[in-house]
Design a protein around this nucleic acid. Structure first.
Lengths: 155, 155
DNA sequence: TATTGTTATACTCTATAACTATA
DNA sequence: TATAGTTATAGAGTATAACAATA
C-alpha cells in the first residue's frame, strides 16, 4: 500500500471504528463521552480539571457529561474539604456495573467484526489494539513532563 | 494479557481513538459524521437509504448530516429522474478537497500518537489499521448476501 | 399498500464567553 | 489576581414517531 493510500484509509478506518463504539454503547444507553469519562474514573477519583485534560475536551463539556452521569447515579460529585473550589468525582457501584456492561458490549461488537477475517488476522486485530493504549500513555507522560518543565521555568 | 483484561482495554482504546478522530477533524471544521458521509460518497453517488445502511445510522440522521454538507457546498442533492422519491448525493470538487484535508489531518494526528512508541511497533499500529477495513467489508458482504437471500425467500 | 425521504421533537456533546466562589 | 467549576448560548448528531410524495 502506498503512503497516499495509507493516508486515506487510516483516518477512515478509525472513524468507522468510532461509530461502531457508539452503536455498541447505545445498547447499554451510554454515549461514548460518558463511557470515556467512566473508565477514566475507574482507576480512582479525579478532579474535573484533570479529567478535562485527560479526555482532551473543554471544562464545560466535562460538567455536562458529569451532570448526566450524576443524574443516572453512575458517579458522585463531592467538594474537597481542603480546597472548596475543587470537585471530586467518584464511580458508584452502579457506575462500575454499567461500565463493565459497556466494556463487554463494545468488545463483543468489535470482536464480532474482526472474526469476519480469518482467525489469524482476527486475533492480530484484537490483540494489537491495546498497543494504541501504550502509545496514548507514552504521549501523556511526555505532556506531563513538558508541563512540569514549564512550571519550573515560570517559578 | 488475560481475556478479561483484553475485554476492558479493547473498547476503551477504540473509544479513545474515536475522540482523537473528532479532535483531528475539528481542525478542518468537520464532524466525524460528516467525514464518514463524505468518504462513503467518495466512491460514487449514493441514495440516502443506501447511505443510512452503510453508515449504520437512521434515515433522519442522514438527512440532518446531508443538510449541513449541502449548506457548506461539499455535496449536491438531486432527484432521480426514474424514481422521483429517490435522492442522489454527490461530492462537489470542494467536498473532495475538504475530504483530502480531513484524511490528512486525522492521519497526521494518529501517526503522531503512534510514533510515541518505538518505530517497529509504531509502524505495526499504522499498517495494521487497514485490516479493520477488510473486516468491515467482509461483514458488509455477508449482510448483503443475507439480504439477498431474504428477498429471494419472500418472492 | 410499500418505499423514500423529510419534519417534528427531544436528548446529548461540543465549544467559547461570561460568571461565581474560593484561594 | 488567579484558579476551579458552572451557566449561558449555539450548533451538530442521534433516535423514534408521524408525515408527504411517489411507486
Amino acid at each position: 500500500m502506498t503512503a497516499e493510500q495509507l493516508s486515506r484509509v487510516i483516518g477512515r478506518t478509525a472513524a468507522r471504528l468510532g461509530r461502531q463504539v457508539d452503536a455498541a454503547l447505545a445498547t447499554v444507553e451510554l454515549s461514548s463521552a460518558q463511557y470515556r469519562l467512566l473508565f477514566q474514573l475507574a482507576d480512582g477519583a479525579e478532579a474535573s480539571t484533570t479529567l478535562a485534560r485527560k479526555l482532551e475536551v473543554s471544562a464545560p463539556s466535562v460538567t455536562a457529561v458529569v451532570d448526566g452521569l450524576v443524574n443516572r447515579g453512575l458517579i458522585e460529585r463531592s467538594h474537597s474539604a481542603l480546597d472548596r473550589r475543587r470537585v471530586s468525582l467518584n464511580l458508584t457501584d452502579e457506575g462500575r456495573r454499567v461500565l463493565a456492561e459497556a466494556d463487554a458490549s463494545v468488545t463483543e461488537r468489535l470482536t464480532s467484526i474482526a472474526t469476519h477475517l480469518d482467525p489469524v488476522r482476527a486475533a492480530k486485530l484484537i490483540e494489537d489494539l491495546p498497543l494504541w493504549e501504550a502509545a496514548f500513555d507514552a504521549r501523556r507522560h511526555e505532556r506531563l513532563a513538558k508541563r512540569a518543565a514549564r512550571e519550573i521555568e515560570q517559578s
